[in-house]
Amino acid sequence: MAVPKRKTSKSRRDKRRASNYKAVKPNIMECPQCHEPKLPHRVCSACGFYKNKEVKEVK
């Protein structure tokens, strides 16, 4: 069985582990009421609507 000759450095080890990480860009959609950008499945911060119902009052 193969045995490593030298200890793997922290930078080499972490570089290998980091190659599998990929940051995910948030999906932004348009609010059907006010047409402002918002995240899906969340209340619109501009108008306060969610699923065509007013959920919170916005000043």
Rank of each mutant, 00 (worst) to 15 (best):
K15E: 14
R12F: 08
M29N: 08
G48P: 01
K10R: 03
C31T: 09
C34V: 05
P4S: 02
R42M: 13
V43L: 02
Q33Y: 11
K7I: 04
C34E: 03
A23Y: 07
P37W: 05
A46I: 06
A18K: 11
R17Y: 11
K5L: 05
V58M: 03
P40V: 01
A46G: 09
V43I: 07
E30N: 08
R6S: 12
V24D: 07
Q33K: 14
A23F: 09
K53C: 02
R6V: 14
V55H: 08
C31N: 02
K7H: 14
H41T: 13
Y21P: 03
E57H: 09
R42V: 14
H35E: 15
L39E: 11
K56R: 12
A23S: 10
R12V: 03
T8A: 04
M1R: 08
S9L: 05
K10C: 00
N52Q: 12
C31L: 02
Y50K: 00
E54K: 05
M1C: 11
R6N: 12
R12C: 04
C47A: 03
H35F: 14
R17M: 13
I28G: 00
V55N: 06
V58T: 06
R16D: 11
E54W: 00
S9I: 07
R13D: 11
R13W: 10
D14W: 09
H35V: 12
N27F: 10
P26K: 03
R13S: 10
A2C: 15
L39R: 09
